[in-house]
Design a protein around this nucleic acid. Structure first.
Lengths: 140, 140
DNA sequence: TATTGTTATACTCTATAACTATA
DNA sequence: TATAGTTATAGAGTATAACAATA
């Protein structure tokens, strides 16, 4: 087994375990993971059509119809007609949606920040360097 | 925002993204995530009863009954009577189940190892140090 | 009577197929 | 005729409630 493979194995186990812990810190359990992810995508990309959202979340259009309906009923997104194409609609995050996302992120970051405080300065420095490398690893 | 909170936010995003990529490298799509996780738990802990498995996977007993039935039908686990308590049964990973888990891990590690090869030596050194720190972060 | 596991049934989420409205 | 979105319907997966067997 090459050195890279050993490192890959260790990283994989650790990253998956950490991700599971982070996921369980979800603040609002009334939203499904897909609904939460859709809300986050809208927040990052700005208004999108249901079709674009479905492609982004790797979900079929009818499923996205239901996700958007649920988010709209909860007042977390708004729906407006497309300016030039009457077939399309644009979905955008409402102020309430932004608030929910902010609460959710704060809660998860707080959990992680608390655990970071238990580390010594050398470990923290290592993590600061590693964050950029991990980003390369995950990207594209 | 304290320095720790900024780092927490960056790490959270990166770790979740990497985890999503790793999860999608799942080799056998015929098994659900719960089924795969249950198989992994049995492999790590040794034989367990359905009740213990349900508690471990945070699933209700009837759901675990179905998971175990599916795994048994696929030949991935075996079911034996408990030696002293006639109510209980013990579920264990079969050789075929161990093979599937090995294939699955190899595939995911291979994907990650391939991406690791694209990094320069300094980045690799950083990751090697960070792996241990991330482990502390995820642990317990 | 308490506990372990299973069966019966219902709900949520997502999928495919068919339909409506607009380009 | 093609495209965007929705409605109709079906299939996983998991939950609660009721049941059977054993301690």
């Amino acid at each position: 087994m090459s050195v890279d493979t050993a490192l890959a194995s260790e990283l994989r186990t650790t990253v998956m375990r950490l991700a599971r812990r982070l996921r369980n810190q979800r603040s609002d359990t009334s939203l499904s993971l897909t609904q939460l992810a859709t809300l986050g995508t809208l927040d990052r990309h700005g208004p999108l059509t249901p079709g674009e959202l479905a492609a982004h979340e790797r979900v079929q259009p009818p499923s996205m119809t239901r996700v958007v309906s649920a988010l709209e009923a909860a007042g977390l997104v708004t729906r407006t007609d497309h300016p030039t194409d009457g077939r399309q609609v644009l979905i955008a995050v409402s102020p309430a949606g932004k608030g929910l996302l902010r609460d959710d992120r704060m809660r998860r970051d707080a959990w992680l920040a608390q655990r970071l405080r238990a580390l010594d300065p050398a470990d923290l420095a290592t993590l600061r360097q590693a964050a950029a490398v991990l980003d390369k690893l995950a990207g594209s």
